[in-house]
């Protein structure tokens, strides 16, 4: 008991001295396993010294003060909460991952959570889908749709687009696609896809006997036919590359927000079989 108390007191005394200089301030929104995977990948590609702050462990994190006092050279923001906090810092580069709000700004770059539209178009071509339906909020995913239209045109695919400004509009807009599309493309759009509306996507796919293509394997269990999924470990490695470039002297403006490079395709054989689709590897 005494020995244990001694050890505890010794550790407690030593703790304040453990803080030391580091290159990268890692802001992690929470201890979620997805974020942990990203960091695992990041570390395989980046050996710079780091300090990790899990935001959910604290009531409030004064990132500006931490940056001022610790003087890291760069911030890696993992998740929405982390990016929100990192936006308050303007003096050093911020690399953002795992956030749909990742867009290029003066000192912010990173990796988007959208797979490149070409990847999806290859999949639609493999499914022989010529008309593909999309529901989205232009305010959130308009930029992506512009690029999707170009990729679709190049692949000979027609995008049938419906716009929504609130989640409530999604079921009605989905209904207008009935009979007009060969496949449904679910974008990671937080207006169009919510806890309440996901079911309407799957129901629409089943009723129309068309495949629903989504962006995360979590949706396979609910009835998505296939997904183009981001590999979180590879996402971390890619963030490591960007960080290395910035630490080596590249400017943020030289490194615009990138598409994720590590992409996996997964499908739900039961759904494909039900739809009578034979999958051709894209």
């Amino acid at each position: 008991m005494r020995l244990l108390l001694l050890i505890i007191l010794a550790l407690a005394t030593l703790l304040p001295s453990l803080a030391q200089a580091y290159d990268i301030l890692v802001l992690q929104s929470s201890s979620s396993s997805g974020y942990a995977q990203v960091l695992k990948g990041f570390r395989t590609n980046n050996s710079a010294s780091q300090r990790v702050i899990v935001m959910s462990d604290y009531a409030e994190v004064d990132v500006v003060r931490i940056v001022r006092e610790d003087r890291p050279r760069l911030i890696l923001a993992v998740g929405d909460t982390a990016l929100k906090a990192a936006r308050a810092v303007q003096t050093i580069p911020v690399v953002s991952v795992m956030s749909l709000a990742t867009i290029s700004q003066r000192n912010i770059t990173g990796i988007t959570m959208f797979a490149s539209p070409e990847q999806y178009c290859k999949l639609f071509t493999a499914m022989s889908a010529k008309r593909v339906g999309i529901i989205h909020n232009p305010g959130k995913t308009g930029w992506y749709l512009e690029q999707a239209r170009i990729a679709a045109e190049n692949a000979g695919i027609q995008l049938v687009v419906r716009e929504v400004s609130t989640a409530k509009e999604t079921p009605a807009e989905l209904a207008t696609l009935a009979g007009k599309v060969d496949a449904l493309w679910m974008l990671p759009d937080t207006t169009a896809v919510t806890r309440e509306t996901t079911e309407f996507y799957f129901r629409f796919g089943l009723e129309q006997s068309i495949p629903l293509i989504s962006f995360a394997s979590s949706y396979l269990g609910f009835g998505a036919a296939a997904v183009i999924e981001i590999d979180y470990t590879k996402l971390g490695r890619q963030a490591g590359d960007i960080t290395n470039a910035l630490l080596s002297g590249s400017r943020v403006s030289d490194l615009p927000v990138a598409y994720p490079l590590g992409i996996n395709r997964a499908d739900n054989q039961a759904v494909l079989k039900k739809l009578g689709l034979k999958f051709v590897k894209p």
């Binding site: 997805g34 929405d80 919510t194 995360a216 979590s218 269990g221």
Partner: peptide, 14 residues
Amino acid sequence: EENEDTLDLFNAFQ
């Protein structure tokens, strides 16, 4: 509480 919209969306609101 503060939302992690991206993570929720990619986890299919599990």
